[in-house]
Design a protein around this nucleic acid. Sequence first.
DNA 1: GCAAGGCATCGACAACTGTCAATGTATTTG
DNA 2: CAAATACATTGACAGTTGTCGATGCCTTGC
Lengths: 100, 100
Amino acid sequence: MALAPPLPDATADELAAMYKALADPTRIQMLHMLSAAEEPICVCDFTAAFDLGQPTVSHHLAKLKQAGFVDSFKRGVWAFYRLRDDMPKSARAALATIPR
Amino acid sequence: MALAPPLPDATADELAAMYKALADPTRIQMLHMLSAAEEPICVCDFTAAFDLGQPTVSHHLAKLKQAGFVDSFKRGVWAFYRLRDDMPKSARAALATIPR
DNA sequence: GCAAGGCATCGACAACTGTCAATGTATTTG
DNA sequence: CAAATACATTGACAGTTGTCGATGCCTTGC
């Protein structure tokens, strides 16, 4: 039998980029926390939860944002992150594979 | 509200390792081909399908195997790869997020 | 207005990853 | 046995990634 037509290159690239955002234990934990939380989570809480410097925490959150999993807003001095409610379909499906 | 208990470190590490295996367009395409195919696919077919050297193709297939997505067998001179039928549950769930 | 605190950005560095060329190992064929 | 073919493994190299320290930008409180 002939091989199936490949996915469009752009599709494969986008999927790979999305999985790359998930390919780190810290970011997995972050998404787990956000999935379980009712409310947005402050960067300061992430910084307290992980044994990592604050710039590193910001770096991971920026990657999750860039990949379309989360968005953020500022209230006063604090920056809060939450799962995007209009998350891309593929992102939502991938997120569903992380245990609650 | 208190933050949810984190995932066990081992769980987060395993998930991250699994997503790392998916974090490459070539490997996405390989899984796509294997999902669509009725039969195991020969390394030579992968080598023909991608504009990559044979060692690189072997490298990608080895990563998919190590991550638990595929297994392989040899028949004569050829090596065939197929989706594992006893794929880990998390791997099966993640694979389901790749378009058929 | 000034100091302090929360966060993002920048620069640097070690570790890892994708790729190739070269080589090694089986298996088939002559 | 010799040559050829299919694949895996090794070594090397450039590009990427996770991490940190230092710095910059805002916002709040004095």
